[in-house]
Amino acid sequence: MTEKNTPLWEVFIRSRTGMAHRHCGSVHAADEEMALQAARDVYTRRGEGVSIWVVPSSAIVASDPSEKDVMFEPTASKIYRHPTFYEIPEEVGNM
């Protein structure tokens, strides 16, 4: 039983207008139209979405977990990017 593999697709769904598409799972399908239909049938059975993206899983480029520190740790010290880093006198009001 050697069957050719049917490609895997990652599914992203916009749950409401105004929201970003979020990854919610994957489906197998031979082509993009079938993938879109499968994503609709599998992942929006309870009205979960208003828009779907499907992306071939093979097209995803991911960062390497072993480089996590190199990639993400340097940002931890850049506290000046956060609003609480700056002190504004209370009289000035909300800013």
Binding site: T6, H28, M34, Q37, A38, D41, R45
Partner: peptide
């Protein structure tokens, strides 16, 4: 024939 289609036909 496929799991995806099982769900599709049921819909």
């Amino acid at each position: 024939p496929t799991l995806e289609e099982d769900i599709g036909l049921a819909n």
